[in-house]
Amino acid sequence: MLVHATLDFPGWGDPNAPAHLHVAPEYLEQAYEKTATPNVVTAVLADYRSYDTMFETAVVFSAGLACFFLLRVQSRKKEEEEEEDRYFRHLATDMVIRIRTPSMHVPDSPYLQQLDPYWTPRSLIVRAACRVLTPFIQLFALYVVAHGHHSPGGGFQGGVILGASLILVALSHDLRTSMKMTPEKLMGVLSPAGVLIYAGVGALCVAAGHNFLDYGALAEWLGTAPEAARSLGILFVEVGVAVCVMATMIIIYANLSSAGGHKQGL
């Protein structure tokens, strides 16, 4: 049936296909004038169809939440029962100590580092390379977010790159180290905060007497022309998107890789 229906389809790349003739030209011809944003994809995404994009961010948020909800194990007691053998490395001598009795308490000490029994990357080269790369990746991510108006990019892409840079830390060191850098609590607050930034910008527009997400409303407060205000509004919501996506990527990764324990795993 699907194959039969293709007979009615317009040919590939046909500039006169109906899809290109109705709404699309209006976007292309007006977007720059109305929103001061040369990247039409960004303009349509974050302004014309910003309502869609807000819920898209909410989808990301709910996926992170769902992974947390389904997998996260929070009772401490159960975890320690499961962890039969614990491994520690004495940093000065590089000796590995195995502790078999679950009840034995090991104090936090700068000389001892707890290891994963399954995943212990030790390669100095990998670690050093990742340590050097990470800041550059993050810088690039910020550029992608900020430059989404003029070149391909935007909140989702930037957020994913930012999240990936932190996941790289988890891959090259271990999950415990990366969870110290990006505490769960912080990520748990940042992920809804991203959606809140987005919806908050929308709500500000309502407060200014316009419709929801009508960034033109912000012109008075920002002291700019409505077009520039739209452009800035797009930037604000893109930042919200990036924050939410980054935090959610880390939440999903941490929960999936360690089956909710956040102790060990890839």
Binding site: A19, V23, Y27, V41, D52, V59, A63, A66, L70, N255
Partner: peptide, 23 residues
Amino acid sequence: PLPHVLMLTAIVVSVATLGVALA
């Protein structure tokens, strides 16, 4: 530009579904 905008959304949705399915 419109299909690209829509698919950005659809990609995000499919990633989200995949994450939940794996969980």
